[in-house]
Simulated assay, not measured.
Amino acid sequence: MPHLLIRGVPPERIRAISGSLVTELAAFCSCPEDYFLLEVLNTTAVFGGEFVPSYPFVEVNWFDRGQDVRDQVAESIDRHIRSQGIEEVEIAFRAYAEDSYYANGKKLAAESAKESELKALRSENQRLKDELQRARKASQAAGSTMSSKLYDALRE
């Protein structure tokens, strides 16, 4: 998990970008690369009684990781697919609830309180890192350096 279902894009084009795409997505999602599954679906589109090319569409099935990560993942998928000469692509996210997801007959949500706390702390840490990065970019764009007091406040 995450699982990307890809339609309307030739498999050889996805194969060409799969390594760099998964490496980037794993960094955004803070999980190992082998958690990702890319499936290129062979689809047949029909319109007006004729066979037509399938529209490029990626469905991302995952456990939600928040808006910032979702935006980064969508931008990465879009950029990688468009790098293959594909002019446009649509991306949709489907979030699974942990208490409704089973692996080998066992509910995934059976995590300990410590694991839940660690997950929450990691999420908060990522949020703070994202805020710090935005503040640094804003400071650089303004042409000034960040004061040490501001930097220390953002680090905390």
Score class of each variant (00 low, 15 high):
Asp68Ala: 15
Leu37Val: 13
Glu33Ile: 09
Ala142His: 04
Phe51Trp: 01
Lys137Glu: 14
Val52Ser: 03
Phe36Lys: 06
Gln133Gly: 00
Pro11Cys: 03
Leu25Asn: 02
Asn42Tyr: 02
Ala26Lys: 12
Met146Ile: 14
Val58Gln: 07
Ile91Leu: 07
Leu128Ala: 14
Gly66Phe: 12
Glu98Asp: 11
Gly105Gln: 03
Gln140Ser: 08
Leu25Ala: 04
Val46Cys: 12
Gly8Tyr: 01
Arg134Leu: 10
Ala113Tyr: 06
Ser20Trp: 00
Lys137His: 03
Ala16Cys: 03
Ala27Tyr: 01
Leu150Asn: 13
Lys119Leu: 12
His80Ala: 13
Ala138Asn: 12
Glu115Trp: 05
Ala26Phe: 11
Glu115Thr: 09
Glu98Trp: 06
Glu75Tyr: 03
Leu121Lys: 15
Leu128Ile: 10
Leu4Trp: 05
Ser139Trp: 09
Glu88Thr: 11
Phe47Asn: 14
Ala97Trp: 01
Tyr151Asp: 07
Thr44Trp: 08
Leu132Glu: 04
Gly48Ala: 15
Lys107Ile: 14
Asp34Thr: 14
Ala92Gln: 10
Val40Arg: 01
Gln67Arg: 13
Arg134Val: 01
Phe57Ser: 09
Glu115Arg: 12
Ala135Asp: 09
Leu121Pro: 00
Glu39Gly: 07
Val69Thr: 09
Gly49Leu: 09
Cys31Glu: 09
Glu75Leu: 15
His3Arg: 07
Ala109Asn: 15
Ile6Asp: 03
Ser20Asp: 12
Pro32Cys: 04
Phe51Arg: 13
Val9Leu: 09
Ala113Leu: 15
Ala113Asp: 11
Phe57Arg: 06
Leu132Asn: 06
His3Met: 13
Asp64Phe: 08
Asp68Pro: 02
Asp68Val: 09
Glu117Arg: 14
Gly8Ile: 02
Leu132Met: 14
Leu121Ala: 11
Asp99Phe: 01
Gln72Ile: 02
Glu33Gln: 12
Pro32Met: 02
Ala141Leu: 12
Leu150Pro: 00
Phe93Ala: 06
Val58Ile: 14
Ser100Pro: 00
Ser147Gly: 08
Phe63Arg: 02
Ala103Ser: 03
Lys114Tyr: 00
Val58Asp: 12
Leu128Gly: 07
Gly19Cys: 01
Arg122Tyr: 03
Val46Ser: 11
Thr145Glu: 11
Thr44Lys: 10
Arg127Ile: 06
Pro56Ala: 06
Lys119Val: 10
Val40Ala: 06
Glu90Asn: 10
Phe47Gln: 15
Val46Ala: 13
Asp64Pro: 05
Trp62Cys: 05
Pro32Lys: 12
Arg7Ala: 08
Ala109Trp: 00
Val9Lys: 11
Ala26Arg: 12
Leu4Gly: 03
Asn42Ala: 09
Leu128His: 14
Asn104Val: 07
Ala110Lys: 13
Ala109His: 05
Pro11Lys: 05
Ala74Glu: 10
Pro56Lys: 08
Ala16Glu: 10
Glu156Trp: 00
Cys29Met: 15
Val89Pro: 06
Arg7Val: 01
Lys114Asp: 15
Gln72Trp: 08
Thr145Phe: 05
Leu37Lys: 03
Leu25Thr: 01
Ser30Ala: 13
Phe93Arg: 04
Lys119Pro: 00
Cys29Asn: 04
Ala27Leu: 11
Ala97Asp: 15
Thr44Ala: 03
Ile77Thr: 00
Ala103Phe: 10
His80Glu: 07
Leu154Pro: 08
Cys29His: 05
Leu150Asp: 08
